Computed example of a mutant assay.
Amino acid sequence: MGHFRAFIVTLLALDAVVFVVGAYLTPPDPFVQLLLVGPALLLAPAVAWWLVYRDGFERVQALFEPDDE
């Protein structure tokens, strides 16, 4: 998968996570949801860029790999 395609898929996945988590963490008031979910959606492209173009997936995976020592 190319970098741009991986970026789009990662961005869509992050957006879905933001909507689901935002729905559970905020009251059903649309204004409050917009105040809390809006900034997260604006931050999602930066996180997706870091994960795809700056080898963020490898860094996150390395955190969860057991040490061989």
Results as ranks from 00 to 15, higher is better:
44 A>D: 02
4 F>E: 12
60 V>M: 06
21 V>Q: 06
64 F>G: 03
26 T>S: 14
58 E>D: 06
3 H>W: 12
17 V>M: 14
27 P>T: 15
60 V>A: 11
44 A>P: 04
54 R>M: 08
10 T>V: 04
26 T>R: 10
34 L>M: 07
52 V>A: 00
52 V>D: 00
15 D>S: 15
46 A>D: 11
3 H>R: 14
22 G>D: 02
56 G>R: 04
25 L>K: 15
40 A>F: 06
16 A>Y: 09
9 V>N: 01
33 Q>M: 11
21 V>P: 01
10 T>Q: 00
34 L>W: 04
60 V>S: 05
45 P>L: 02
55 D>A: 09
18 V>F: 02
65 E>N: 12
10 T>P: 03
15 D>Q: 11
38 G>Q: 03
6 A>P: 00
3 H>E: 14
44 A>N: 07
46 A>M: 04
3 H>T: 14
57 F>H: 06
25 L>Q: 15
54 R>E: 10
10 T>N: 02
1 M>S: 05
14 L>M: 02
30 P>I: 12
50 W>Q: 12
40 A>L: 07
10 T>D: 00
66 P>S: 10
45 P>T: 04
28 P>E: 14
26 T>P: 02
11 L>S: 03
32 V>H: 13
61 Q>K: 10
45 P>Y: 01
29 D>S: 13
44 A>Y: 07
41 L>M: 07
2 G>M: 05
30 P>V: 10
8 I>N: 02
47 V>I: 13
5 R>L: 08
34 L>G: 11
17 V>I: 09
49 W>N: 06
13 A>Q: 08
57 F>N: 10
14 L>V: 06
15 D>A: 11
43 L>F: 04
41 L>D: 05
4 F>P: 04
39 P>L: 04
54 R>N: 08
8 I>L: 03
43 L>A: 11
40 A>S: 12
28 P>W: 13
45 P>C: 10
44 A>G: 01
36 L>P: 01
24 Y>L: 15
45 P>D: 04
22 G>N: 07
7 F>P: 00
14 L>A: 01
66 P>L: 12
53 Y>W: 10
32 V>P: 09
44 A>Q: 02
30 P>Q: 04
51 L>I: 00
9 V>C: 05
25 L>W: 10
61 Q>F: 10
39 P>N: 03
52 V>W: 01
42 L>M: 09
32 V>D: 11
42 L>C: 13
25 L>C: 13
55 D>R: 07
18 V>Y: 01
61 Q>Y: 08
43 L>Q: 11
2 G>E: 07
52 V>I: 06
9 V>G: 08
20 V>M: 13
9 V>I: 09
39 P>V: 03
39 P>T: 07
26 T>G: 06
4 F>L: 03
6 A>T: 05
53 Y>A: 11
23 A>C: 15
56 G>F: 02
45 P>I: 01
66 P>G: 11
45 P>R: 01
12 L>H: 07
38 G>K: 03
31 F>V: 15
21 V>M: 01
13 A>W: 01
40 A>M: 06
25 L>N: 13
42 L>D: 13
31 F>Q: 15
61 Q>H: 08
60 V>D: 06
1 M>C: 11
54 R>S: 04
59 R>Q: 11
25 L>M: 15
35 L>K: 14
54 R>L: 09
66 P>D: 06
